[in-house]
Design a binder for these strands. Sequence first.
RNA 1: GGCGGCAUAGCCAAGUGGUAAGGCAGGGGUCUGCAAAACCUCUAUCCCCAGUUCGAAUCUGGGUGCCGCCUCCA
Length: 451
Amino acid sequence: MSIRIHNTLTNKKEEFVPVINGQVSFYVCGVTVYDYCHIGHARAYVVFDYIRRYLEYQGYKVRYTQNFTDIDDKIIARANERGVSIQELTREYISAYFEDMDKLYIKRADSYPKATEYINEMQDIIKSLIKNNYAYIIDEEVFFSVEKSSDYGKLSKKVLDDLVAGSRVEVSDKKRNPFDFILWKKAKAGEPGWDSPWGNGRPGWHIECSAMVNKELGDTIDIHAGGEDLVFPHHENEIAQSESYTGKPFANYWIHNGFVNIRNEKMAKSKKNFFTIRKVLEKYNGETIRFFLMRVHYRTPLNFSFEGIDESAQALERLYNTIKLHKNVKQNSDNTSEELKVFNDKFVKAMDDDFNSAEATGVLFELNKYINKTGYGVDLLLKLGKILGLFNIEQDSDAVLTEEIQSLLDERMIAKKERNYEKADLIRERLFNEHSIIIEDTIEGVRWKRK
RNA sequence: GGCGGCAUAGCCAAGUGGUAAGGCAGGGGUCUGCAAAACCUCUAUCCCCAGUUCGAAUCUGGGUGCCGCCUCCA
């Protein structure tokens, strides 16, 4: 069985065949670091994280690169607002990025190139594009000529003539074609800039990814990923630049995740309907958020709501209850391995089919029930969950209790033996109210867990 | 105007030709001093219409509703 991926380029599910057998070059479009990340960002990076983990589970050696855009109009504006340098600003938000993503259990990429560290590489590509007539210089700025790219629009399925130029944004009259995009932008007075053959300025947005992909991963990479909103114009333009530059296909598989919505509308800064990751982390742990984001197929729009996360928290706890109850049970395999294999196969089949984490998590719950019925299979549950980046939270059943709590537990046991249930129940309430300890009486004795 | 997506139980959500995974919530039950956890059990014919087919939630056509992209955006 092989992995099938929905490729935006063809709009079909295709069998995944990497350029080099057993290896995957994987580029993910990162963030522009001028603010905190919101749940929409979280979804993208959780999705690509479990896709990466699954590829690794299937034995691929994955080279995973994600960029930081650390020079851009919004960054300049925000730095000016605050009266700090762009370096100071971007450093702050890069470290905030890592704090947030670490809490969501997102594995670190193999490299995190920054735009400001790729100025030379970008200039080299721009020079080449000019030389080969794909780009033109006007007034110390450089534009890419979309008409020179014969298959422009192939990713987003757009036909240049059908696009409504300037319908929502003013068209610069410098451009030969309204859809030409900027490769090098002239620095205005007071703005940061780098010397170039065309004057002091800074790179356009799209060119950084072309330069980074080329240097870090090669001319043709296996997977290029990002949010659905990047398909046009960002990824379309990357393709135009890179393929004009190298003469080779830029990326074989394009993966785009669906949006996070608030009441059926895209979560976006401009709509002011977003929740930052750190805001949601005030109330929920990162794994719950991660789980919430994984229970829907990655291309389906996902409505964000606190009710939805509550539901996921409840569901995740169900799995943890099982793990806690069975993790120390000696596993035997002979007479159960065949049955367990069915769960394993279902899980793999779901993930093989365009990384269907929604179906895969469903399998986790089917297995969960099997474990509770038979007592077998918790190892498999842990294994499968970990492929998705779950079960990171250490169970604290063996953790040391404070003396106070321990003595309350003892006191309750004595009360129970004396059939003084009123007292026992009072202690139970107190443990919950004052210490967030939930008591469960079982045949083997008292079990407790923290809320 | 062009392009694309979605519509499945109270809620969330898989499933792309053979009679609807899973989760949450709710009802009933087993266990328990009670509770919790767990288990058992109950609750859908898949937006509407027409068509193809022995057979469609799944394919085709039409309709309705919602969303996204064509601006920066994960």
